[in-house]
Write a protein that binds this DNA or RNA. Structure first.
Lengths: 182, 182
DNA sequence: ATCACTATACCGACTAGTCGGTTTCTTGAA
DNA sequence: TTCAAGAAACCGACTAGTCGGTATAGTGAT
């Protein structure tokens, strides 16, 4: 079969939707704009996705798949799970963070399904971190820290990082937290 | 003169805009919906605000004023500033947090001015916390923690809190952070 | 002939903003 | 005391434009 290296039209459409959500927000993510960015006509879009809800469902499926991968990585190396979780929040260019951000845009637009999906993902991360770390307060601290980093990144969109999310600072903060006794 | 306790129409319009943004998102915050909620007609709205941008500017002014108040409180008691900052992130019903959340909805919709304003506010909080706490890494940690709490709250809208933002948990986390040696 | 589209036209719902008109309150001259 | 004139606050119908969705005729490759 030799699956093509070039992304399929379906993938490109989801990519386009995701990219527009991240960089320009929900309002701008119209069917015309998505089709244009994906390099197809509007008819081409509706050929693959009968409605915008179907396209959104595909974006949700992508997030679920990426989160599953991420959870597998954390489960594979429990000792690094907490550090990995915090640090990966910084990597706003990663497929997971970009997809997460896109769904977050929808959630902030108060799309109920997007909110539910994000809550579900957070629960999964919490469970895996609990298995890896053991201490519940520590897990809350780690997740809140990750959320804070992520929130800062999401506000600036694709633009320049504010000082808060400087990787070196995060490294030092992780070091500080590591010194906490329980 | 005896200034009325009942909020003016202008205030009610900004209230309505803010409330709809927080609980239903940017898309739902139409001029009609805002006017309806404020108890005036659309004409009544446009009498006070010539455009939606003007209404948004009034919301921004409100946030600036509330942040100034908040900064004054922190400056008045530097020893409690960090704890105050983290804990007040939990109080999603406070005028400041609600207004902040409304502007955040616009920022997530990638409104450039909203992003700029939020960045400006964060800088001010950072400066005041630096004066109060001294250690830069500690200030970053405190702010990221506050952002994480705030982000969790903003995702759930006005709904029930997820476990992460349970006040007792936050108290314990603040306690843990207080044990860090520099 | 089927698949994966292109291109274009269209509809109904909705949205920001406009505009003529109405009500209510105040003011100041006859 | 009355009343005309303004001004402030507000109403609601209308316009122009946008968006999601539908429909349809056509194209080129397999």
């Amino acid at each position: 079969m030799l699956m093509g290296h070039a992304p399929s039209t379906v993938q490109r459409l989801v990519d386009a939707y995701q990219d527009i959500l991240v960089s320009d927000g929900e309002r701008t993510a119209t069917l015309d704009a998505i089709a244009l960015r994906a390099g197809v006509s509007k008819g081409g879009l509706t050929y693959h996705f009968k409605s915008k809800d179907e396209l959104t469902a595909a974006l949700f499926d992508r997030l679920r798949a990426l989160v599953d991968e991420d959870l597998a990585v954390m489960r594979a190396e429990p000792a690094q799970a907490a550090t990995y979780y915090v640090k990966s929040s910084l990597d706003v260019e990663s497929p997971l963070e970009r997809c997460n951000m896109a769904v977050t845009r929808l959630a902030q637009g108060v799309h109920p399904d997007a909110n539910e999906l994000l809550a579900e993902c957070r629960t999964q991360w919490f469970t895996v971190l609990m298995d890896a770390v053991g201490n519940e307060d520590m897990v809350h601290l780690v997740m809140l820290l990750g959320d804070g980093i992520y929130f800062n990144a999401s506000l600036t969109g694709t633009g320049a990082m504010p000082e808060e999310t400087d990787p070196a600072t995060i490294d030092r903060i992780i070091g500080l937290i590591g010194t906490i006794d329980f």
